[in-house]
Design a binder for these strands. Structure first.
Length: 589
RNA sequence: GGGGUCGUAGCUUAGCCCGGUUUAAAGCGCAGCACUGUCACUGCUGAGAUCGCGGGUCCAAAUCCCGUCGGCCCCGCCA
């Protein structure tokens, strides 16, 4: 298939049709089975495996056959003898009888086995990433990644989007995540930053009239790592002109469905037309802005139901702005005391004072608050949740954020415990109508939930003056199985609205000019109404491949502490370079 | 910044709770020998570990304690 100077075929191609052909293969020595008078070698390349049969009496180099060395074989294809066919192997009907072998390069014994699926220490894998990438899992992942990105490119191209490369060395706009800095040689004391996203550039491209833009964009964020976060990651960045939220969503959901059908054909797709769920509904029912809707276990609000209760935490909730909410866990009566304690502990870690259980046992209900509740209240709660014998209801009373986070978390934990989060199901949806702002108590001001260029919903523009915290945005997140795989918004193109938003965010006009001057100036020259989205494509590929960590889908990732263990970066650089960069190092001891 | 967890031959792990019957064990890999039909070849033989590092307790430490370094997971953070 890929005939080159060093080979006539790749290691997956040969079959009985090639019998008696003279061929040349090149690849890595994966296994050697030495029978004395006959040696078998499994020769591996990216495409597959071919068995080579070597007669050591005829071939002197047979002594040099060492695992993971690179070997070229010239020989003749032979059908395997009766009963010697390996059905597990694509090339299992034949073998190549070596007439001449040449070791093209030798390999030291690798630090871990390439030919094995067993888990290897992460440090080792990252240090020897080039060897880790030889293993089948990583070969598969990187190739699937390529294919997904290719499909994304083709899709947008087909739909008239233009891919534009935006610069990596840009101006810092302290807002949002911490940026990687690049000192300037020519301008002492000044810095470029690496983009945390091409956000402003793509909006400028709309001003330029490109109408439909996309980019497979590398982004950088100098923040701490998680299993699904790397300092350097790839975003499928999209922006469109003359659109409202629905236009952006429909283009992107078609792509999502195409990708899921092509790359995860064995999974059950819960929705082909994605549901739109408001942020409010997501928070109320699922306790999260990225709900996992593969299972229900919905949160119920019983604040009003228990407002007359003898249990003060319940009866006083409303007057202090708290919510009393709970979850019905079908079959939850089997949870052990220890499990219930764990739920309570995690509730406390989210800032709740406690978590109340009502276990519907055979003889009746077991609950620490039973003595405070009137029988009709107990009945009302039972009815509200639809609880029956064998179930458990977990109730939490706290402020909106805490009650959502607590129950949202416990919902997922219970979903896991009850095996409701089916790995073979994909349940995508859109979460829409996010609040424009989020209150930042530590800074005593409102912050943009999405970013400061997000447009408010038309019907909420008036709220900006009166109750900005109630205003909703034309923002949308693409959520898959409880994971946010993309997010975007319709942007503000009206300078008046934009300056009002800056005011609310306590960004002064001078400040705005300093940080976003380029964008504001551009918007004086006819910006079209526009909006867009960015996909975290690494995360999406991770889900397609059922991989638990983003590192598994990135060829050369950083470790948990953002180091490159293979290259040894970051590293010190020669004094000369420091000088030229016009910076001085002042280490805190 | 905080919490959790792990660190024992090249790799993967057992032993650690409850210190001494352990000359620190096993599988894989590696080296040597034998073998013409294997495909995770097989059989035999062998080398390979001061148990991450430093300190402490103890007659005695892989095992208990303190510190430290490193990997991973989580919280904060990620407009």
């Amino acid at each position: 298939m890929h005939k080159t100077t060093f080979r006539t075929h790749t290691c997956d191609e040969l079959n009985t049709k090639n019998s008696d052909e003279k061929v040349t293969l090149s690849g890595w020595i994966m296994r050697r089975r030495d029978h004395g008078g006959l040696i078998f070698v499994d020769l591996r390349d990216r495409y597959g495996l071919t068995q080579i049969a070597i007669d050591p009496t005829k071939i002197a180099e047979a002594n040099d056959i060492k695992i993971e060395s690179v070997m070229q074989v010239k020989g003749v294809v032979r059908s395997r003898p009766e009963g010697m066919i390996n059905a597990k192997l694509k090339t299992g009907e034949i073998e190549v009888v070596a007439e001449e072998i040449k070791i093209l390069s030798t390999s030291k014994t690798p630090p871990f086995e390439i030919d094995s699926d067993k888990e290897v220490n992460e440090e080792m894998r990252l240090e020897y990433r080039y060897l880790d990438l030889r293993r089948t899992r990583m070969q598969r992942n990187i190739i699937v990644r390529h294919k997904v990105i290719k499909a994304v490119r083709d899709y947008f191209d087909k739909n008239d989007f233009v891919e534009v490369e935006t610069p990596m060395l840009i101006k810092g706009t302290p807002e949002g995540s911490r940026e990687y800095l690049v000192p300037s040689r020519l301008y002492p004391g000044k810095f470029f930053v690496l983009p945390q996203s091409p956000q402003q550039l793509k909006q400028l491209l709309m001003v330029s009239g490109f109408d439909r833009y996309f980019q497979i964009a590398r982004c950088f964020r100098d923040e701490d790592q998680r299993g699904d976060r790397q300092p350097e990651f790839t975003q499928v960045d999209v922006e469109m002109s003359f659109v409202e939220a629905e236009d952006v969503m429909s283009v992107n959901e078609k792509l999502l469905i195409e990708l899921l059908k092509e790359f995860a054909p064995d999974k059950k797709l819960m929705n082909v037309k994605l549901p739109r769920m408001t942020w409010k509904e997501a928070m109320d029912k699922y306790g999260a802005d990225k709900p996992d809707i593969r299972f229900s276990l919905e949160i119920h609000d019983i604040t009003d139901l228990v407002s007359g209760s003898g249990f003060k935490v319940f009866s006083e909730a409303k007057s202090v702005g708290n919510f009393v909410r709970g979850l019905l866990i079908p079959g939850g009566a089997t949870f052990s005391r220890r499990e219930l304690d764990e739920f309570e502990a995690s509730a406390k870690s989210y800032g709740a004072h406690g978590l109340i259980y009502m276990v519907y046992e055979k003889g009746g209900i077991k609950s620490p608050i039973l003595k405070y509740l009137k029988p009709e209240e107990v009945d009302a709660i039972t009815k509200e949740f639809g609880a029956k014998e064998g179930d458990t209801v977990l109730i939490c009373s706290a402020g909106f954020k805490v009650v959502c986070e607590t129950l949202g978390h416990i919902r997922l934990v219970c979903g896991d415990k009850l095996n409701l989060r089916d790995k073979n199901v994909f349940a995508p949806l859109w979460v829409i109508e996010f609040p424009m702002f989020e209150w930042k108590p530590e800074e005593n001001k409102l912050d943009a939930s999405h970013h400061p260029f997000t447009a408010p919903m038309n019907e909420d523009v008036d709220l900006l003056d009166k109750e900005p915290e109630k205003a909703r945005a034309k923002a949308y997140d693409l959520v898959l199985n409880g994971v946010e795989i993309g997010g975007g918004s319709v942007r503000i193109h009206d300078p008046k609205v934009q300056s009002r938003i800056f005011e609310i965010l306590k960004i002064t006009p001078e400040d705005a000019k300093l940080r976003f001057g380029h964008l504001l100036r551009a918007f004086e020259y006819g910006p079209p109404p526009h909006g867009g989205i960015a996909w975290g494509i690494d995360r999406f590929i991770m889900m397609i491949l059922d991989e638990p960590n983003i590192r598994e889908v990135i060829a050369f990732p950083k470790d948990q502490k953002a180091k490159d263990l293979m290259m040894g970066a970051p590293s010190e650089v020669p004094e000369k370079q420091i000088k030229e960069a016009n910076i001085s190092i002042n280490l805190k001891s």
